[in-house]
Amino acid sequence: MKNESIKVFQRKKKNILELWMTNQLADQGLREDLMSNEDLRAQSEELVSAFIDTLDDVTINDGRATAFEKVLDILSGISISRAKQGYSPRETGIFVLSLKDALQQVLRDEIKDVAVLYDQSQKISKIIDSFSIETFETFIKGREEVILRQTDEISEISTPVIRVWDNIVALPIIGTLDSARTQVVMESLLQEIVETGSNIAILDISGVPTVDSLVAQHLIKTVSATRLMGAECIISGIRPEIAQTVVHLGIDLTNIITKSTLASALKAAFAMQQLEVVKRQRQNNMVVNN
């Protein structure tokens, strides 16, 4: 004999969908700005029919049954896309949990025997709970993907190597310098050195909030790697506070050419290249004599 509630659900598929829609539309967290009611309806309908079609005497007792794969696929699709669209976890959770209300409402109307009703509604409750856990997991995965993508983007845009003059490149570092970032910085700096044939690199750390011994180590590594390639590396943009902490921490930067500003670093670079910046007598243009 078929389970009571399955029969009810199959018969009342339409009602369930309507009820669920009403529940969702009644919720204050409804995001009409993110998704139109038609789309929401289509999504809900797909899920309801997949769910009811999968329900049988076995699956009703096990929300994690493999037969629910199709339902879970739909669910995870929905939650990942919601995560990306900027839904909050609460809004995504309510989407699934309000289905439970709809199902139980139908059961209450159809099943008169209290014992059976309790038993059935318990089972449905369990299944939907396991669905909502699944939904949260995929929702978080979706968010993680967004974060990963943003991290990649940030590390890419935050390392622009600038050609400031023939044979001189500069790289302003903005933000904290951890080991992953150092590698990106080193890589793009050294690559640019090779491509432009520059023999002087200026590393400007005006935008680095603090220099602790780890950051200093990363800076020293970058300078050493630049020297290994056969180019000189100047560190500029050292603020007084940073000079203080560096000395207090006992970090030895004496082997590294350091300048307080990018301008003085550029001057030092010009001197190394035997370039001279002079003011023209009549015009106010700057020219460089070799």
């Binding site: 890589e187 050294l190 050195i193 790697a225 290994l228 390639m229």
Partner: peptide
């Protein structure tokens, strides 16, 4: 004089602790 070292090689040498 050693010339033309690849960037990846330079980074690796530094990490290895071998500044030549």
């Amino acid at each position: 004089v050693v010339v033309g070292m690849q960037p990846a090689v330079a980074i690796t040498l530094i990490e290895l602790g071998l500044p030549l």
